[in-house]
């Protein structure tokens, strides 16, 4: 299967959808496991979800071409982004009552920023939307955010995957955070033209 996914990694546009689907499902499954309390997201004994997906999909054995690895992680980081956005949206749907549940929904008050969960979810959604705007200005910085923030790679791992030096990552990361902070401070009400999950 590693070969097959390697083929997909290299096949370019024609395979993008299929590749996306494979990776997305794998990460979704892993996220579910976290939510079921069967997995910790990060810690000394665990790999991050993206690493785990890599192991599961690429077999974890044998040499994987550097470019394929990069491609994989880029796709995985983006998929992670959409998985998390999905979960974040779900959180909001539950809170506000989607109407699809069979049980009566308790009308919860807006917890406001004091509730860390909501804060998290809002942040994830806001960054997600802002990234589309960032993408129009600098695509590589979008990848940087996906790798650092959504996938959780360290600075050095990010530098390796993006093929740049560590200082570059440090500088760019700081710049991007600055930029994002400015955008988020604008208020998320503005223009939510972000793309939906494919």
């Amino acid at each position: 299967m590693a070969r097959d996914i390697t083929d997909l990694l290299r096949a370019g546009a024609t395979a993008e959808e299929e590749l996306w689907s494979l990776v997305y499902q794998q990460l979704k499954g892993l996220a579910r496991e976290v939510l079921r309390g069967r997995r910790r997201v990060a810690g000394p004994q665990t790999t991050t979800l993206v690493h785990e997906a890599y192991l599961r999909l690429l077999g974890g054995e044998g040499a994987v071409d550097y470019n394929d690895r990069r491609h994989f992680y880029a796709v995985a980081a983006r998929a992670m982004r959409f998985v998390l956005v999905d979960e974040a949206r779900r959180r909001f749907a539950t809170k506000r009552g989607s109407g699809r549940s069979a049980e009566p929904i308790v009308d919860e008050l807006d917890d406001g920023p004091a509730d860390p969960l909501t804060h998290h979810a809002e942040e994830v959604l806001a960054v997600h939307q802002a990234l589309d705007r960032l993408g129009e200005v600098n695509r590589r910085h979008v990848e940087l955010v996906e790798l650092r923030y959504f996938a959780g790679f360290t600075v050095d791992e990010t530098a390796d995957l993006m093929g740049v030096s560590r200082p570059t990552v440090v500088r760019d990361w700081r710049a991007v955070r600055t930029w994002l902070h400015g955008v988020l401070a604008e208020g998320s009400a503005e223009d939510s033209r972000g793309a939906e999950a494919p």
């Binding site: 976290v34 939510l35 910790r40 997201v41 990060a42 959180r91 998290h120 959504f150 994002l180 902070h181």
Partner: peptide
């Protein structure tokens, strides 16, 4: 006014937050 902690924690932390918040174990859309 950028706080140092902004975006510092990876977004996957949200999953743990959701678990603690009890949002995980049941599937909201039955």
């Amino acid at each position: 006014a950028l706080p140092e902690s902004f975006l510092l924690a990876p977004a996957t932390d949200i999953l743990e937050a959701m678990l603690e918040g009890g949002a995980g174990s049941e599937e909201p859309d039955v």
